[in-house]
């Protein structure tokens, strides 16, 4: 199972970011989202979605093995995390985020909430 971005469908509404924070942290706060949307304006006038493809580079970068794979999904063990930021720096897509109010970095849990809410089908779940 994979989360796939179709940026050409995106209209930049950001509902995905809001539902991400609400689902994973119970907070109305898009700064707690594990994906990002970038508008390229005024030219060329397109949106770009960046999201986690569960590549596992973060787990390799973690010095305390606080990121582990379960069924193809890399999850942060918030108790084991030492908030060193190595994973955030290492993420090739720039989609691990730090937030002042959280001790561990924000990472996609493949909860599928973003795909469920995206009104444009710019985020879709592909089964293996």
């Amino acid at each position: 199972m994979k989360l796939i971005a179709k940026s050409e469908h995106c209209s930049g509404c950001g509902a995905c970011k809001l539902v991400c924070g609400l689902t994973n942290f119970g907070q109305v706060n898009p700064a707690m989202a594990a994906l990002s949307i970038h508008g390229r304006f005024p030219a060329p006038g397109v949106y770009e979605i960046r999201l986690c493809d569960q590549c596992g580079v973060c787990a390799e970068a973690c010095p305390v093995e606080a990121i582990e794979e379960e069924n193809g999904i890399f999850l942060v063990d918030t108790d084991a995390c030492i908030t060193c930021g190595e994973c955030v720096d290492a993420c090739p897509h720039g989609v691990m985020f730090e937030h002042a109010r959280l001790d561990a970095p924000i990472k996609c849990t493949l909860c599928k909430a973003c795909a469920a809410v995206c009104p444009r089908d710019a985020l879709v779940i592909a089964e293996d």
Partner: peptide, 9 residues
């Protein structure tokens, strides 16, 4: 070129 949405639209 693209549809452009307001917040959560």
């Amino acid at each position: 070129i693209t549809d452009k949405g307001c917040y959560c639209c």
